[in-house]
Design a protein around this nucleic acid. Sequence first.
RNA 1: GCCGCGGUAGUAUAGCCCGGCCAAGUAUGCGGGCCUUUCGAGCCCGUGACCCGGGUUCAAAUCCCGGCCGCGGCACCA
Length: 516
Amino acid sequence: MSPDELRRKASELGISEEKRKEEKKGLPPLPNVEMWGYVKTRFAPNPDFVIHLGNARAAILSHEYARMYNGKFVLRFEDTDPRIKTPIPEAYRAIEEDLEWLGIRWDEEYIQSLRMELYYDVIRKLLEEGKAYVDLCPADVFRKFRNEGKPCPHREEDPATQLERFDKMLEGCYGEGEAVIRIKTDLTHPDPAVRDWVAFRVIDTSRNPHPITGDRYVVWPTYNFAAAVDDHVLGVTHILRGREHAVNTIKQMYVYRHMGWRYPEVINFGRVSIEGFILSKSRIKELLKRYRRMFLGYDDPRFGTIASLRRRGILPETIRELILELGVKGTDATVSWENIASLNRKIGDRKCKRVFVVLNPVRVVLTNLETPLQVRIRFHPSENLGERQYLLSRPEIVISRDDAEHLRSKGGLRLMEFANIEYIEEKNNSIVAKVVKGGVEVAKAKGYRIVQWIPVEHAVRVTIYEASGKRLRKRRAVGESILRNLVGEVVQMIRVGFGRIDSAVGNSVDVIYAHS
RNA sequence: GCCGCGGUAGUAUAGCCCGGCCAAGUAUGCGGGCCUUUCGAGCCCGUGACCCGGGUUCAAAUCCCGGCCGCGGCACCA
């Protein structure tokens, strides 16, 4: 076919060249949207800790797809295990804050521990219809039956007995481990994990109270049951989750088949990790428990939690773009820090204030500077981010040792946004220099460096915390006093790197370093 | 051990379903140039990949088979 023919064919089929380009940029389309008639997605975290980048992937993709199709997005807390993955009261709000920070808005919010009656209603129906049963076998006894593909004696008993036992469970007649409810599946299913999986178990909430419902319930649905019911009841059309959930999809389909429901479309994506970072919730929890004093908290810059990334100056747009770039591929992805840094730099370059921080400071005395002198320095050369002013009453500034070296060998340099200076001599551990005429052009013509500088009388102590693998390096530096007013902001420390002003106490400022 | 998923440049991703617009696109990294009051950003040029072996076909990154490697699941966790 000639190019012309191809183009004609393409337009017949409704494909335009522009359309192809657009598709390339965004996420791939969701399957079977027409069949459902609408799109509803959900993010379902366990509030047992703050979320990390991997969780954020599910949240961002789900949210993004809902937006793409003008659909709805649901936040659902899966807190049905008060014993092993005990929810933390503060985590509910912390997760909401992380999502808000990421720019995610949800249309509906649910908490599973507040929906227990719903799960009881559904399981009652399944028991009545002989599609589930109360299993009184000890775990190891059942496992034997299951591995042989044989039914345990309780499976065959009639619905009346099942319902009776269910009521006894609710009344607290069985202790932990004495009774579970199982969904009837296929006892010969090749994957033993799928065979008659557990839908409810007994948890002694007088010993392990639930942070929201206390000891009100002792019969708790498992993840697979609660999620299966909710996804249907809430009208979820598309589930986006990590591929560790692949078997759960198979398990949950049995509930749908029994109830005559239609199972949502499922997309399983791979795990994300950041090169050199700790992402795993359980690993972070363990580290914090055992070596509490060695970390700054759950948002320590060495962790991959959203709070950590935020605290060290990664912008929400960076995370969003990163995740959308990863897409929905089923393979695991190890993103390099270089890549995150590059994205963050690009986005931050435009919107972050630029400030002066000097490493290895050396004092420079300017012999011919007339003081007092008011100096204004813009926060950004091209964007309108405001300015700061300093009143110089003494002609003393600091620059970095490295730049001082250059000043001596090259004979001069330019103090950014201020003046060109020339070297005279070295005296009492200070450099003596003089201000000379001319602007940037002159400095460039002479091959002078253009450097950051700080008036001695407006200097504050700066500690830069830099995550470097498992270590947290501390670097001492000097910064301009305006930093004290910038707590919480992400800034570009000119020629040093990006970071976030973490705190300011008296004349000391802590900065968490993001990247160069 | 048993079940399942996947392997495109250093890293990540597009293309694979529906074989030929692919001598493989993009981002980052690296090298060079331009621009810029930063060693940052921007612009331009260059660099570099279809896991291996068979098969089907006029034609395979794309389909089939085998191997190797990686990952996930096998909880009364989510």
